[in-house]
Amino acid sequence: MSPTTLPASLTRTSLRRLAHSRPTTCLLRTAAHRSITTSTTTPTRPSPTLQQPLRRATRQHQTRPLHYPAHPSSPSDAPFSPPELALLRAAYAHVPQHGFSAESLALGARDIGLLDISTNLLPNGDFDLIRYHLFTQREALVEKSRGLQGSVRDRVFELTWLRLLGNREVVGRWQEALAIMAQPSYVPASLSALHELVDDIWYLAGDVSVDPSWYTKRASLSAIYVSAELFMTDDRSAGFEETKAFLRRRFDEVGELSSVLGAVREWVSFSGSSAINVLRSKGVPTENISSLSEKREVDGLG
């Protein structure tokens, strides 16, 4: 890398990813982009092969490059450098037995002819091993999303379930992993990984609507996912049936809740604006009222 004079928002990793990106395997998505391209009410399901044109991100919105390489098992555009990936891949094989730990990392280092001390290549050791798991599972979901049937809701359910099954191999170690992720210095990165996953699930399920429910949908799926993941770490049932039933119940609850909320919000904004129109037609100055009603809508978004 040459001496950097980069805007602070561009991390080295995101740059590396940008540098490696090819339009056919890379999709730049931003909230702004979505709101532009998805104003139609009928959701059309984007194909996972992602033939959508690469769009330029508007400046005020953060660009979030996301990669769906043809072979998810060889993530060449991963947020890790090739030497890091080699070490992580080798160490990951030891996770079922030794956890997301220094032990697994050192064993992995030895497997590929490195030294015990070589694990210092990784900036955050055990947490990097967890990030590797999150990253590879997130990528694998793209393949799994092909050919899903049913409504958006059904597909969101199915994708969430498939992602949970991605923890199967390491489920005995996942409580430890959650404890590491909850360490203060790792919380921001852990939360953004969760956010990215949930975002992917809605997207891969074909939900491209941008309306006030955008945030509620993501917030509720995050909550469901986190609780189901935790439930699964204690689930001894065959094929994790109980986790699946748990997940189903959570989905049903939220289904009722969010449709109620959605209906209320719609009613409020509709009746609000029609009330303003009535007042306007009677010549009443409405600046204050309309700014109030706008504020209410913004609050509803948050």
Partner: peptide, 9 residues
């Protein structure tokens, strides 16, 4: 040398 992440803390 090869570095991990951004290479420094």
């Amino acid at each position: 040398f090869v570095v991990g992440g951004r290479g420094y803390e």
